[in-house]
């Protein structure tokens, strides 16, 4: 079963409490589910639905809009090669063909051993460092074919411990210490902020 483990359930409740309305926590909670499982399984969607108080169809509706959420398990390493305009001008096409050859899969595919998924993606905000790619959302700038081979070989050999497996988005999380929190601001409570004074 892929429902939240206790620690993540606690975290999920903490995240929900930060928002004025629980539904706003839907995307962060889906990330949490993806972090736990590598993708978002059906029962995780149901649990997120329960937690934020909507139907699981609504969770699916939201989830399916966003590219990062996977409904089937991708490779341990999701390799995203940018084919946006700046990268295209700087050789992204050749890099992508090379990657397909090196990994033996087409863009959109996953290697049979479940190690790598490959995708051509839109601009990833590294345009001056073209051609750019990401492995599990960690960047490689100014990529070359040789550099790509080295990267893939190092990942396959388990030498890139700086790149966590797919689903783990950020290794640092926001913590709001309860004694420091100002608290979520409900849209239903109309109060003049104290520091503005009476006027």
């Amino acid at each position: 079963m892929s429902r939240f483990i206790d620690e993540n359930l606690r975290l999920a409740r903490e995240i929900i409490a930060r928002y004025p309305k629980p539904r706003s926590a839907m995307i962060p909670l889906l990330h949490l589910a993806q972090e736990q499982n590598g993708y978002v399984p059906q029962d995780a969607m149901e649990e997120v639905a329960e937690l934020v108080g909507v139907s699981s169809a609504e969770v699916l509706g939201t989830l399916s809009f966003y590219e990062m959420f996977k409904q089937i398990q991708p490779g341990r390493y999701q390799v995203n090669i940018c084919h946006g305009i700046s990268c295209f001008l700087c050789g992204a096409g050749e890099l992508l063909s090379h990657a397909e050859e090196k990994l033996g899969i087409k863009s959109g595919g996953t290697t049979p051993d479940g190690m790598f998924s490959l995708e051509a993606v839109e601009c990833i905000a590294a345009c001056t460092e073209a051609p750019a790619l990401q492995v599990n959302y960690r960047y490689s700038h100014r990529s070359t074919s040789e550099g790509f081979d080295e990267l893939v070989d190092a990942l396959a050999a388990g030498d890139r411990t700086d790149i966590p497996e797919h689903g783990i988005l950020a290794t640092v999380r926001q913590r709001i210490p309860s004694e420091r929190a100002a608290g979520a601001s409900s849209p239903d409570v109309s109060e003049v902020p104290v520091w503005l004074g009476e006027g």
């Binding site: 995307i27 990330h31 709001i176 420091r180 601001s185 104290v194 520091w195």
Partner: peptide, 26 residues
């Protein structure tokens, strides 16, 4: 937050606000 720049009574004043980091999804 720890240093008192965000949250309740920022820098010892009556100004209070939370900043919540929200993750997009592509």
């Amino acid at each position: 937050y720890e240093a008192g720049y965000i949250g309740k009574n920022i820098c010892g004043t009556d100004f209070s606000v939370d900043i919540v980091l929200h993750w997009g999804a592509g």
